[in-house]
Each structure stands twice: as C-alpha cells, then as structure tokens.
Amino acid sequence: MIIEFIPLEGIKIDNKTIRFGATKEEVIKALGIPDDILDGMLYYDNIGLRIELDKNMKVSFAESWNEENIKLKLYNINPLEIECETVLKLLEEKNKGKIEYEGGYNYYFLNLSLGIGRELTTSDVLDMIKEAKAENVYEEMKEQLLSDLKKSKYFESIGLGTKGYYVEVKGGEDE
C-alpha cells in the first residue's frame, strides 16, 4: 500500500483520495472504520496513519510513520527511506519560504504545511556512543547503539496539514 502526501491538498492511499476538508464520514467510506477514534483523531494503526479533524469535523491534518508493508510518497520519493539531508534539501526547494525547526529533530515547512521529524539525531547517538565507551558499557550496548545510529539518519514521521496548519500550531508567521 502507498500513502502519498500531496501538500495543501491531502493524501492519496492507493486510488482513494482524502482531501483536506473531507468529512469524517467520507474518510470512513474511503478507508473503513478506524482502529480508534479519540479527541477528534482517527487512528488507522494497520497502515500507520492518523487523521485529525478540526472543530467542524473536517480533515485538517494527516500523519504517517514507518510501518511495515506501507510505502510513503512525497514528490516521488519516500521521505522516510532517504537520508535526512537529501529530504531537507528537496523540501527547502519546494517550500520556498520560512522553515521552523526544533534542534534537528522536527522541521516545519510553513508554505507546504508539512512537518517531518525523528527522535534521534546522528549527533545524539554519537554522544551516546562516546558516553557508553567512557562508562565501559559500549560492548553490551553496541548492537542497540549501532541500530540507533543507522535510524538517526532518517526521518520517522511526516505530517501534512491544511494551509496555515503549522503556522497555528507553531505560532509562526505565514509567508
């Protein structure tokens, strides 16, 4: 299954399009009953997808993450399978405007209403390796640390909202 993120429009899952502004009923008709509905959010755990509804119960945001058997697509790439630097360069070109970020973990491309994030940076993991070696626990932690080092080079989740979504959430200014 492929989930395609189309900035400022919505998402496409296989041949089903969920546009921003679609109703909860339209989402359920397209994707089926969600695994969970909580606080205006529809969770489709089996495909790693969360859809947020606004106060009018219309789709305002979609988020996905790495999930087995699911491929994500954004501008003809899978942004979670290509190294962060390459993804950032592409999104900077497409955004053509203000970018907010949180210490290398989360990036918000305000003109695209797109956010992308990860839990660990490569720098974090290199610091953990250095610390583990200094504390003589590196060998017992080596497998996990090397796995984390590999994961740190890639983003883990992507979110897409209606125009201005991240301006409201992050408190920035629209360009």
Rank of each mutant, 00 (worst) to 15 (best):
M1K: 11
M1P: 03
I3W: 01
I3T: 09
E4H: 04
E4K: 15
I6E: 14
E9T: 13
G10E: 02
G10V: 01
I13W: 10
K16E: 07
I18Q: 03
I18W: 05
I18C: 02
R19P: 01
R19D: 06
R19V: 14
G21V: 13
G21A: 11
T23L: 00
V27D: 10
V27Q: 07
A30S: 11
L31M: 13
G32E: 10
P34M: 10
P34I: 05
P34V: 05
I37V: 10
I37F: 01
D39R: 14
Y44L: 10
G48M: 08
R50N: 11
L53P: 02
L53G: 06
L53Q: 05
D54M: 02
N56M: 12
N56G: 08
M57E: 15
M57F: 12
K58R: 15
V59K: 06
V59D: 00
S60D: 01
S60T: 04
A62R: 06
W65S: 05
N66R: 15
E67L: 05
E67V: 04
N69S: 06
N69Y: 12
I70C: 05
K71G: 14
K73Q: 07
L74V: 03
Y75W: 11
N78E: 15
N78C: 06
P79E: 04
E81V: 00
I82W: 04
E83N: 13
E85I: 11
E85P: 00
T86G: 08
V87S: 05
L88G: 00
L88P: 00
K89W: 02
L90H: 03
L91F: 03
E93S: 08
K94Q: 15
K96H: 06
K98T: 12
K98F: 12
I99E: 02
I99W: 04
I99N: 03
I99Q: 07
Y101Q: 14
Y101E: 14
Y101A: 09
G103F: 04
G103L: 12
G103Y: 10
Y105Q: 15
Y105D: 01
N106G: 06
F109Y: 05
F109Q: 05
L110P: 00
N111Q: 14
N111I: 01
L114Q: 00
G115I: 00
I116M: 06
I116C: 01
G117Y: 10
R118S: 09
E119L: 08
L120H: 10
L120Q: 09
D124A: 13
V125M: 03
L126Q: 09
M128W: 12
K130D: 09
K130M: 07
E131T: 15
A134F: 05
E135D: 10
Y138G: 00
Y138A: 01
E140N: 08
L145M: 09
L146S: 01
D148P: 03
L149R: 09
L149G: 03
L149W: 09
K150G: 07
K150I: 15
K151Q: 15
K153Q: 13
K153L: 05
K153R: 15
F155G: 02
F155M: 13
E156K: 12
E156D: 15
S157Y: 14
I158P: 00
I158Y: 02
G161D: 12
Y165P: 03
Y166H: 03
E168F: 10
V169F: 09
V169M: 14
G171Q: 11
D174P: 03
